[in-house]
């Protein structure tokens, strides 16, 4: 089967899954249907010639599903009923969505057509990667050698977001569970 046709099918499936995620009432079902969207995304990555990202997407999707189920299970997992006034909100939002989609259709005409990427920078990486780095996985050689400083910065972004999550959770610990991290005892 043609790859482009398959990608259309997968994208339509993802759109349906995302719509169900947004509109369903039960929160646990919403979380599970976003899991379906994520696994389909991983399949799309596999067809697009990116096995690295497909592996990462599958593994990350499992962990994010566990986190989201942690957030929704055991608490009242029913979506909040819309008030009467929010119908106006919905309608305005939908009108603007339509306008944005029309403009996006014209904007995408000016992009490079699908299947013919601009390879100005990547040609250099593909030509010199094996000699300069010695790694046969070119994605890894871009991440960890040509653009190693970017990766360093992104690891620091991860550090900041994780320590932000910790800072939010820590105040609670100081109140009740002082034995989890000894950082709290120093204060």
């Amino acid at each position: 089967m043609d790859v482009v046709f398959l990608l259309h099918l997968l994208l339509v499936f993802m759109i349906i899954g995302a719509f169900i995620t947004v509109e369903i009432k039960n929160m646990l079902s919403a979380v599970i249907s976003i899991g379906a969207v994520g696994f389909t995304l991983s399949m799309a990555f596999l067809f697009l010639g990116a096995p690295d990202i497909a592996i990462t997407q599958v593994i990350v999707e499992i962990l994010s599903l566990i986190l989201l189920i942690r957030a929704t299970v055991n608490v009242d997992n029913v979506a909040i009923e819309e008030k009467g006034e929010s119908v106006f909100h919905n309608r305005t939002a939908l009108i603007f969505v339509g306008i944005i989609l029309v403009f996006a259709w014209f904007a995408f005409q000016s992009l490079a057509p699908f299947g013919e990427p601009l390879m100005r920078v990547s040609d250099y990486y593909l030509n010199n990667g094996l000699i300069m780095v010695g790694a046969t996985n070119f994605v890894t050689s871009v991440i960890l050698d040509f653009r190693a400083y970017d990766t360093f910065g992104e690891a620091m972004v991860l550090f900041v977001s994780i320590s932000g999550a910790f800072a939010i959770l820590r105040r609670w610990k100081r109140e009740q569970h002082k034995d989890f991290l000894r950082i709290d005892r120093e204060h």
């Binding site: 096995p51 690295d52 497909a54 592996i55 990462t56 593994i59 990350v60 790694a135 046969t136 996985n137 994605v139 890894t140 050689s141 991440i143 960890l144």
Partner: peptide, 10 residues
């Protein structure tokens, strides 16, 4: 990670 798909992140 530098020979087959994968790496430090996954």
């Amino acid at each position: 990670g530098h020979i087959t798909p994968g790496g430090g992140f996954p």
